[in-house]
Write a protein that binds this DNA or RNA. Sequence first.
DNA 1: GTCAATCTAGCACACCTGTGCTGGTTTGCC
DNA 2: GGCAAACCAGCACAGGTGTGCTAGATTGAC
Lengths: 201, 201
Amino acid sequence: MVRTIDQEARRREIVDAVWRILERGGLEDASVRKVAAEAGLATGSVRHFFGTQAELHAFALRSLSERVGERVRRAAAEPDVRTRVVAMLTELMPLRDDTTRELRIWLEFVHRSRFDENLAAIVAEQAAEVRRFLTHVVTGLGELGHLCPTADHDEVAAGLNAFVDGLTFELLTAPALLTRERAFALLESFVFGHHMRNAAE
Amino acid sequence: MVRTIDQEARRREIVDAVWRILERGGLEDASVRKVAAEAGLATGSVRHFFGTQAELHAFALRSLSERVGERVRRAAAEPDVRTRVVAMLTELMPLRDDTTRELRIWLEFVHRSRFDENLAAIVAEQAAEVRRFLTHVVTGLGELGHLCPTADHDEVAAGLNAFVDGLTFELLTAPALLTRERAFALLESFVFGHHMRNAAE
DNA sequence: GTCAATCTAGCACACCTGTGCTGGTTTGCC
DNA sequence: GGCAAACCAGCACAGGTGTGCTAGATTGAC
């Protein structure tokens, strides 16, 4: 056998090229030829590692979610509860340059997934994971006393999810409406204010 | 001069075809040929009314926003304040089949606008208009006594905007996470609950 | 060195795209 | 009727696309 370790490195290089293109021009620009050029390869080389374009895109998406997952897990190590909640939510939103880059790319896939069953399955799984994660966060908030005791945690998590998604979406698509600082302030106010009561209250 | 009235009808027919295609397959599918086929015309006919594809897309977007605007204005006629606020917000969200259709199409343009300066200008103007509209709604809420007197209306409007956008985005891209009924409940809870205090509070 | 697995490179095909252009057809005014 | 403007239809060109395929280069085990 020859070179089993470099294979993964090459795949990562190619995925990096995909990400750069997605950030710059969106998924439509991520043709096999352009990806190859961006990675400094020939189209045949790319197709040796990814038999089809769909495979390449799916792999790029999965790699992205792995990366985000790692980051969130790292933020989860923070000992102080309140700091931890904010840190973890922050990782999911475009509040820094690095996360902005990731979420810009992520938005490309989410959008495409509306008309692509393959991507849709992956995206749906990711969304469900985020929701579970937010439910966890809400439980933590309950222990912190930031929640009305009668609040329905699922309901509160759904609301938090919508708020986070809305801030993210606006930061990505309408930067004139929202600065990072303001988004962060709104997030803190939403989480630690008296906003998390039950809808049935 | 021949036929000055049918011209607008034709344009509308073509735009209708564009919308149908956008809903079904996204903006990428809205090629001149496919639009023509959908409208039952030859490509040359479409190009007689819209010199270029970009022009066609821009026109389809503007037509959409006009349509939504009319609907919102109609909802603004409701006399009861509380009912009116809900009705107006409802028009901006995919809570019915007709508005869902419009917002699906709208999302296509918003997404494309990230890499298309022409569309970006139109979309940004629309977003600003929605924000002004929401600020208006918030003022109405203040008069209703649903707002903390010290609340910063701009801040509250920004939060409401994010929440509405988040619910909309999730309904369009992650229907497994959110039903229309739940979204409506969350909206009402957000607007009429104790959620609208000032961030600096 | 030998050799086979792995990787790279790129040509070729069929298809779709926007748009320039050139004819034909319909329409309503005079 | 005649005529010009408005409209319709579609060909043609120069690109770009995914992917099948073949041929060469590189690599590491033996």
